[in-house]
């Protein structure tokens, strides 16, 4: 539930707002709806990771991976799939940590 909510809201936010809106969404949704720390982190991490994985995969495929391969070479990792993993990890980490802090904040207020 928490996961789905973050996924939907962060998708919506990212179509119009800068990338860091994911932190605001995760923080807010976890603040309102999370019950446990682990649950908040996993939901934030998973939802953002999935939303970034989906979009990155989509663009990678429709562009035949031309640019992602070049960027992978530029960053000296030489594999667009590793680049995608790094992308997902970074997005997920921001999502997880911001959701966790939203949950902690709520707990502190109670």
């Amino acid at each position: 539930m928490l996961f789905l909510l973050i996924l939907l809201l962060s998708l919506l936010a990212q179509f119009f707002l800068p990338w860091w809106s994911i932190a605001v969404v995760c923080f807010g949704v976890a603040f309102l709806r999370a019950h446990r720390g682990g649950q908040a982190f996993l939901a934030g991490f998973g939802a953002i990771a999935l939303s970034w994985l989906g979009a990155a995969l989509f663009w990678h495929l429709v562009t035949d991976g031309l640019l992602s391969s070049r960027v992978a070479a530029l960053l000296t990792i030489h594999s667009p799939w590793l680049l995608m993993a790094a992308t997902v990890l970074i997005g997920g980490t921001v999502g997880g940590i911001s959701a966790l802090s939203g949950f902690f904040f709520r707990k502190a207020l109670r």
């Binding site: 990212q14 179509f15 800068p18 990338w19 860091w20 970034w52 979009a55 990155a56 989509f58 663009w59 990678h60 429709v62 562009t63 035949d64 031309l66 640019l67 992602s68 960027v71 790094a86 992308t87 970074i90 997005g91 921001v94």
Partner: peptide
């Protein structure tokens, strides 16, 4: 952040 985000970053620049 903005570079890797597939909603604004480089991923979509190839299109």
């Amino acid at each position: 952040g903005p570079f890797l985000s597939p909603y604004e970053g480089f991923w979509r620049s190839g299109s």
